[in-house]
């Protein structure tokens, strides 16, 4: 699971949870996979990103230092910034671990890079 995906997911499917964002990450296996840098795509994604959640997620997986605390102004032209964003959004992948609901503490396992966001039958 890429941190880009993590940034879009909530646990708002659980009964009683109202925001469910951002999900905590407990990682037991992390991989960095090189992905071709595409500044246009990254720049398109930035407005959709909740940056503080991304920063938090990066810290959760031990990569907090790799992105700045805030989105820089005129990021579209800032290749250095876009490269850092690209790295954190697209290249860092949680292979094994858990996503944790910030309100209920319910855990969603990630195995083989695929998060399992299903609830149990008695939770729906």
């Amino acid at each position: 699971m890429k941190l880009l995906t993590h940034n879009m997911l909530t646990s708002n499917i659980i009964k009683g949870v109202t925001k469910g964002f951002p999900l905590g990450i407990q990682v037991s296996k992390l991989e960095e996979k090189s992905v071709d840098f595409n500044p246009d795509f990254v720049a398109r994604m930035i407005p959709k990103i909740d940056w503080s959640a991304l920063k938090q997620a990066a810290s959760d997986v031990g990569k907090g230092d790799e992105i700045p605390a805030d989105i820089v102004p005129q990021y579209e032209q800032n290749e250095d910034f876009l490269k850092k964003a690209h790295h954190v959004l697209m290249e860092i992948e949680v292979i094994e671990g858990e996503l944790v609901c910030p309100e209920s503490g319910r855990k969603f396992p990630v195995s083989n890079g695929i998060p399992n966001m299903l609830l149990n039958e008695d939770e729906v």
Binding site: M1, K2, L9, T10, I13, G20, F21, I114, P115, N116
Partner: peptide
């Protein structure tokens, strides 16, 4: 390089995704 993710999830529960146009 165009692969983002595949997840196990139930499409009857849209609340899984943060409520912005994605």
């Amino acid at each position: 390089k165009y692969y983002i993710d595949a997840l196990v999830a139930d499409s009857s529960r849209p609340g899984l995704w943060r409520e912005i146009t994605l």
